[in-house]
Write a protein that binds this DNA or RNA. Sequence first.
DNA 1: ACACCTTCGTTCGAATTTGAACAACAGGAG
DNA 2: CTCCTGTTGTTCAAATTCGAACGAAGGTGT
Lengths: 158, 158
Amino acid sequence: MSSLNEPRWLDQDEMAAWRGFVVASNLLNRRLERQLKDDSGLSHQQYEILVHLSAAPGDSLRMTELADKLVTSKSGLTYQVTQLERMGLVARRSCPSDVRGVFAELTDQGREMIRRAAPGHVALVRELLIDVLTREQLAVLAEALGTVSARLRQDDTP
Amino acid sequence: MSSLNEPRWLDQDEMAAWRGFVVASNLLNRRLERQLKDDSGLSHQQYEILVHLSAAPGDSLRMTELADKLVTSKSGLTYQVTQLERMGLVARRSCPSDVRGVFAELTDQGREMIRRAAPGHVALVRELLIDVLTREQLAVLAEALGTVSARLRQDDTP
DNA sequence: ACACCTTCGTTCGAATTTGAACAACAGGAG
DNA sequence: CTCCTGTTGTTCAAATTCGAACGAAGGTGT
């Protein structure tokens, strides 16, 4: 027999997909981090916080909900929201219906910041990822990674 | 005119691909990190160091070369190799042909560690990514992300 | 031999991230 | 109401990460 407890290793294609994913992810993050820092003084994480807030109704989200969207730890979010608060880009507001609850809310300055930071960021995402791929590749990527994300999400919560 | 300096925003498919990439990447890392830590006491980064070393001729690599493969900073690698050295999994060896050079080399314990850690890690990568996708999706993913990585690499070095 | 520029790996301080522990509260079962 | 369980956001110490600066050495051209 070939497999007495022998794991199924990754074949060449599988390995290529996995390595490609890891490497592209690291490389991309590195570049985006640099661009955002140089261009707007924001980390990628901070930028994403602003984006998610600006996409939310009332430009505000509960801390836990925001942490879920960002796929980060609650404590990490607490830290970053405090930073953004110091920069005047975000404000904390307490939740009426739940005394424990805290809303992170975009300030006017925060809206202005995201308006100025977005174009350069999007342009780089295009240059490094989107415009490098064909329409078909993009569609497959979206579908595939959507599936993966959905599975991971539902498998993590319970 | 539609675009007086207006950036080309991402359409629905493009956004889905990009968000999928970011989210899947974060979720995956999070899960793998947890699994490796619980199962073997290694971080993902440390695991990858061991893997790259074990795949290299002589189970050893120069620090800079290793940092490139890992897509991490040199200082970050210095730190992690020191940690692995303390665990007895990796040893530093000076380079004969270059006094400044340092080889990171896998120890016997390191080889044993990777042998024990790999199956669980690979199984999870399979469960969360590889086995979730079809053969075609995997092929496209590998091809697409390979292209992206290659472009990023060549664009970063100069 | 000399000056010049690059490369190598480390060190340093600052920023960030994490999980565990925590206090305060919400929501239901009884 | 009262106990019980789960949630919410924060705090804390520890671990990790990064970039800049550094000393030391390689490599090249003159």
